[in-house]
Amino acid sequence: MALDILYVISGLGVGGSERQLALLATSLSRVGMRVAIYAMADGPMRQQLEASGIEVMICPVARPTGVWSSIRAASALYAAIRRLRPRLAHFFLPAAFLIGAPAALLAGVPIRVMSRRSLNYYQRHAFYRIAERLCLGTVHAALGNSRSVVTQLLEEGMAASRVALIYNGVPEPASVSRDDARARLSLAPDALVMSLVANLIPYKGHADLIQALALAGPRLPPGWRLLAVGRDDGIGADLKRQANDLGLADNIVFMGSRSDVEVILAASDIGMLCSHEEGFSNAVLEGMAAGLPMVVTRVGGNAEAVVDGSTGIVVPARDSAGLSAAIVRLAADRALRATFGAAARKRALEEFGVDRFVSLHRAVYMALDEGRRPADVVVYPGPNEPAHS
């Protein structure tokens, strides 16, 4: 039967979790489920969702952070839930979960689900650690998007029967030729081009990559480029200074936020992600789907997406020498790049496609509606195998 689902999310910015929610909500709506979204803050994703026919509501309390503003936000959400009477509420991101779980419990929502989409570093503060563990006790299912995330949920006391692993989904990218992409970006046809799609945040490891490129520079072909795509969250000036001091200012292009990431990936030869921490990266999947060999750090779900030595190269986090060696290896071997890239695209679209992502969520929802557990329908995988139902 069709379920009424209310998704509660912290905001509607153009981020990985927001795009995953948009994929899920619009896909379920197309198969007849009645879906609405309640966001704690407005953002550009709202227009896309509403254009797809999804009802979107915005919390009237602007960015609740303190105790009293959070109580007011929870009260507003409680009122919306009482009006909508959803069968199921699903919380995305910590702020939405901490405010939404108590409101949904008090409003009597029959089925309550949360998604953990990052490692729990934010729980270093005791308040968040205690509050989130209390809220976990109020939900019927907790969904993690990598083995690392699922492991932490279990360590925090969630029963294994109520936890499920559902990886992110990646759509097939728009078809853009390499030559056309390079022409649009004014890149030389024969240049070695690497890309990194990550907001400029310290834990994304940009500084490690710049140092790695300085080490690799003498062994890279002349005219190589790194296209660094992402919003500057405060470290852009420092990174540009580092690149300049290392003599790489002409090679590294800081592109800011972009709406044409598919063009940048199509123009690239190698994809990168050098994070110190991750849940499960959309950027890695998108690079793989674009047919890029990926160089990633062994954190979170990166090594669950990228098979080392088959679809790319996995190196330790904070290891500029290891990054440098991986870059040099791929830069010197066009055939290896092609082999890894073809395998990466196949793996991304077959094992992490949107259909699998949506069908696993739907299976969990239906099981809960029938009084069964997430573990009854989503089988926890073995090594290098995605979850399946």
Rank of each mutant, 00 (worst) to 15 (best):
L6I: 06
L6H: 05
R19H: 07
L21I: 04
L23A: 06
L24H: 08
L24I: 08
V31T: 15
V31L: 11
I37L: 12
M40T: 03
G43N: 09
E50V: 10
S52C: 12
V61D: 07
V67L: 15
I71E: 02
I71W: 12
A76R: 12
R82H: 11
R85A: 15
P86M: 08
R87Y: 00
L88V: 15
F91E: 05
I99L: 15
A101S: 11
A107V: 07
G108N: 12
P110I: 06
P110H: 07
I111N: 03
R112G: 11
R112S: 11
V113D: 01
S115N: 13
S118V: 14
F127I: 11
I130D: 06
I130G: 04
A131V: 13
E132H: 13
E132K: 12
L136F: 14
V139A: 04
L153A: 12
L153H: 02
M158P: 00
A160Y: 00
V163E: 09
L185G: 12
P189D: 10
P189K: 13
A191G: 13
V193K: 10
S195N: 13
Y203Q: 09
L209C: 12
I210N: 07
A214I: 02
G217Y: 04
G217F: 03
L220I: 05
L220V: 05
R225K: 15
V229M: 11
R231Q: 11
D232K: 08
D233G: 00
G236C: 05
Q242I: 01
G247K: 11
L248G: 05
A249F: 02
G256C: 14
E262K: 01
I264G: 09
A266V: 06
V284L: 13
V284D: 03
A289V: 03
L292G: 07
P293V: 09
M294P: 05
M294A: 10
T297R: 10
G300L: 05
V307L: 15
G309N: 04
T311N: 08
G312E: 02
R318A: 14
S320H: 14
G322Q: 09
S324V: 04
L330I: 11
A331C: 04
A338P: 00
T339M: 03
E350P: 01
F357T: 07
P374C: 06
V378P: 07
V379L: 10
G382H: 03
P386G: 01
H388S: 14
